[in-house]
């Protein structure tokens, strides 16, 4: 399932990117806005950097690398991430320079650690466990354009393992650890 979503994410990113580029008039400059991105938390690293692009008015994506120190994760973990943001809701301008755009998103997180695996170790029968190094989040966020160059991301990410207890098995149980994690990000237009 996760591999399917990963493939879907990659294909959608590439297709939107391609569509965006093909839409340009011959000889004109590439109009897709690209951004450098820094962010924290949201299960994607204590600190993370990436490259982001608004491929259309309703689809934006980012790819990057996060880092979490051993004080947090037991051993230093580098993780890749792939974010997909779908901006289906209307934008709202708060002032001339600030525009808020709510979005729904789906992200993939790829971890590196001795204790995590993509390929099931040989002692297991097929599909005994899903890959432990691969996780998904469901994202609810707000993109804020701050002037011409900057935009901020404020996002609540719900980890895949949190969804079944929250949706199907939550009655009578209020967890001490609140569901999800907040991501704070800043994008700079290149």
């Amino acid at each position: 399932m996760k591999l399917f979503v990963l493939l879907l994410s990659l294909v959608s990113t590439i297709s939107f990117a391609s569509e965006s580029m093909y839409a340009l008039a011959p000889g004109s400059e590439l109009e897709t806005p690209y951004y450098g991105q820094v962010q924290s938390f949201g299960f994607q690293g204590t600190v993370a950097v990436g490259l982001s692009a608004d491929f259309s008015s309703w689809y934006s994506g980012s790819i990057g690398v996060g880092y979490s120190p051993s004080s947090v994760t037991g051993q230093d973990i580098f993780n890749g991430f792939l974010q997909n943001r779908f901006l289906f809701l209307p934008d709202y301008a708060i002032s001339e320079n600030i525009v808020m755009s709510p979005y729904l998103g789906l992200s993939m997180i790829f971890g590196t650690s001795d204790d995590l695996f993509y390929q099931l170790p040989e002692q297991y029968s097929p599909s005994y466990y899903p890959p432990t190094a691969l996780r998904m989040t469901l994202d609810f966020g707000l993109s804020m354009t701050l002037g011409e160059r900057y935009s901020g991301l404020l996002q609540w990410s719900l980890l895949d393992s949190e969804v079944p207890p929250l949706v199907f098995h939550s009655e009578g149980f209020k967890p001490i650890n609140q569901y999800g994690s907040v991501l704070l990000g800043l994008r700079y237009r290149l």
Binding site: S68, D115, L154, V182
Partner: peptide, 28 residues
């Protein structure tokens, strides 16, 4: 502006305070 700024800062504060900030799925 400036009521918009107040609104957005308030929303952000509520959002952040209401949720945890996890670095990684593999926190220990």
């Amino acid at each position: 502006y400036p009521l918009g700024y107040v609104l957005i800062i308030s929303l952000c504060s509520i959002f952040i305070n209401a949720c945890s900030m996890e670095s990684s799925p593999w926190d220990v």
